[in-house]
């Protein structure tokens, strides 16, 4: 019989209890168990970065973590980034302004990765940003709009703080 566990975790500030098969990845659980389909599975071997979410504040690949491992932890997905009233946050707004997305598939992983990165590196250089997102593959944009968005968001966030 399938090996399952009861888990409890907080996602975007909301607590959830679920019974999960232990082989289920955190990404698949968020998408299909909780219906939070903003997190995208792009390669399922930890390279493309589309599935990146924050667990206890740190950006991680949700395809390389089992849902059961998130038991008791706090998860933030792309759905949890905007302001409570739905307004885009500074990073999202910068992506919009700088054409930082085309098809939108890598975008959730870019946003979650950069959210953690900019928190720890509030004044990055272009080189820093390019290295930070080197674990997130985008096939559409050539990265330039994303880099510009991140640099602009960093400025905005510094002004705001």
């Amino acid at each position: 019989m399938a090996d399952t566990r009861d888990i409890e975790l907080t996602v975007n500030g909301e607590s959830h209890a679920a019974n999960v098969e232990t082989r289920t990845s955190l990404g698949d659980f968020l998408r299909h168990g909780l219906g939070l389909t903003g997190t995208h599975m792009g390669c399922e071997h930890g390279v493309c970065g589309a599935c990146t979410v924050m667990v206890d504040g740190e950006a991680v690949r949700s395809c390389l973590m089992l849902a059961v491992q998130a038991n008791g932890q706090e998860v933030t997905t792309v759905e949890g980034l905007a302001e409570d009233d739905g307004t885009l946050n500074a990073l999202q707004a910068a992506f919009w302004k700088h054409h930082g997305l085309q098809c939108g598939f890598c975008t959730p992983g870019m946003l979650t990765s950069l959210t953690a990165f900019l928190r720890d590196n509030p004044d990055p250089s272009e080189r820093d940003v390019r290295e930070a997102i080197s674990g997130n593959i985008c096939r559409c944009t050539g990265y330039q709009g994303i880099v510009d968005a991140a640099l602009d968001a960093a400025k905005t966030m510094q002004k705001g703080s």
């Binding site: 939070l36 389909t37 903003g38 792309v78 759905e79 980034l81 885009l88």
Partner: peptide, 13 residues
């Protein structure tokens, strides 16, 4: 973009 930036795209999966 606003839809895609907030995780509300609707891809096949």
């Amino acid at each position: 973009d606003p839809r895609l930036l907030t995780g509300h795209g609707r891809y096949v999966d």
